[in-house]
Amino acid sequence: MERVISKVTFDLAQTSLRQVNHFLHRELNSETPKITLLNPDGAHNLAVGLDATIDVEIMGHTGYYTASMNKQATITIFGNAGTGVAENMMSGRVHVKGFASVSAGASAHGGLLVIDGDASLRCGISLKGADIVVGGSVGSFSAFMAQAGRIVICGNAGDALGDSLYEAVIYIRGQIKSLGADAQIEPMMEADYQTVGELLAQAGLSYQPQDFKRVASARQLYHWNADADQEY
């Protein structure tokens, strides 16, 4: 039986954000529709909290928290994303074709966030299990207190990369301006090359895994050391 793919288009210059998000939450039919959103014009909270295997294409630049709390959906932004894109994502895939502002993928639990351009400060802050692939560079304090998940950075990182990391792992191809407290560069093992290769392939990027370094927690902050004079 041929599967019918319905296509729905909303123009945010004509339809309110609330109506669009209502449709995405409540009015999806049993088929797998492809939804296109035109003229986002920097609107906040677009396609947030989705929970269906649907494809959403956003044709332009978005405001804060686009695709946050996403479950299952594949959301592509053909433009730049504002603060907190894919924040707290649980599963699914979010792809930013332009650059992402601060706190991209903050505290995301699962799924994949791909940013073709640069990500600003605090990318992957408090990451809890999602994967992030950044085609460009990331700003300072990226992966701060990241607990689980993987971040692949094809460009450079700003100051304090991976400060107070838990068990998330960072792979970076370019220069690190400075490492954060308790973050250290570690040797790449076979499993690391494989991970990087897989994530790059999922993101559609063709860099060589051999060019990446691994940054992970030295785990010195896991236990309070009263003799350390708080020098960390």
Binding site: N39, D41, G42, A43, H44, G60, H61, G63, Y64, N80, G82, G98, F99, S101, S120
Partner: peptide
């Protein structure tokens, strides 16, 4: 925020950066 720039003429072809 970008939403204050979205209606400027030719903004779709502008060089946009943070």
């Amino acid at each position: 925020e970008f939403r204050s720039l979205a209606h400027l003429p030719q903004v779709k072809h502008a060089h946009i950066y943070e």
